[in-house]
Amino acid sequence: MSKENSEEFYERLRIQLEDNSTWPSTYLYKFIVPTDQAKIDQIYDIFDQNGAVIESKKSKNGNYTSVSITVVMEDPLAVIAKYKEVSVVEGVISL
C-alpha cells in the first residue's frame, strides 16, 4: 500500500472508530505473521506495556501464526498508532 493510500485508509478508520465506539474502549487487533518467533515477539513487544491480552495460534501447516490482541485503547488515534507500529514487522498482515 502506498503512503497516500495508507493515510486515506487510516483516516477512514479513524472516522469509523469515532462514529461506532465510545472511548476509551476495548479494541481487538488481529494480525497474521509468518511463523518466526522474532516477528511474533516484535508484535508482543509493541503491546507489552498496555495490559493487553494476547493469543496466538499457528496455521494448519505451521507457516503462519495468527495473533489476536485485546486491549483498552484511549481513542482512535491510539488504535491507529499501534497499527502503524506493527506495520514495520516484515510480512505482517493486519486484519
Rank of each mutant, 00 (worst) to 15 (best):
T26D: 11
V79Y: 06
N63H: 00
L17D: 07
S21D: 00
D48L: 10
S94L: 07
N50K: 13
P76L: 07
V92K: 03
V53S: 13
Y44L: 13
T26F: 02
S56H: 14
V67Q: 12
V71T: 13
V92D: 06
E55R: 15
V33N: 11
A78Y: 01
E55L: 06
V88D: 13
E85A: 03
P76S: 07
I46S: 00
S68T: 13
L95P: 08
N50C: 11
I32R: 15
W23P: 05
D48V: 08
V89K: 08
V92F: 00
G62A: 03
V86F: 01
S6W: 12
K84A: 08
S68G: 05
E7V: 03
Q49P: 02
S6F: 09
E8Q: 14
S66H: 07
F31D: 01
V72C: 11
I93R: 06
D19I: 00
I54D: 01
K57I: 02
S59Q: 02
A78K: 12
L28Q: 05
V72S: 13
V88A: 11
E8Y: 04
K84L: 01
S2V: 02
F9R: 15
Q49E: 10
K3F: 13
S25F: 09
V33S: 11
Y10V: 07
D48R: 15
K3P: 06
V53R: 14
W23A: 02
K82F: 12
K58Y: 03
S87Y: 01
R14V: 11
E18A: 08
D48W: 09
E4L: 14
A52D: 03
Q37R: 07
D75C: 07
Y44A: 13
P34E: 02
D41Y: 00
R12N: 15
K84V: 04
L28G: 00
V79W: 06
S87E: 02
I54N: 04
V89M: 07
L77I: 12
V71W: 13
V53E: 15
A38L: 08
L77Y: 08
M1C: 09
A81C: 06
N50Y: 10
S2Y: 04
S2M: 04
V67L: 11
D19W: 00
A52R: 02
V89Y: 10
I54V: 15
D48M: 04
S2N: 14
E74W: 06
S25L: 03
Q37Y: 09
T70L: 14
T26K: 08
Y83G: 02
V53L: 12
M73D: 12
Q49Y: 05
S6I: 07
F9C: 05
N5M: 13
N50W: 07
V79H: 10
R12E: 15
S25E: 12
V71G: 13
T35H: 14
Y27I: 04
Y27V: 04
Y44P: 06
R12P: 08
P24M: 01
Q16F: 10
E90C: 01
Y64P: 00
F47M: 03
F47A: 03
M73G: 06
S87P: 00
E55T: 10
S6A: 11
S94H: 13
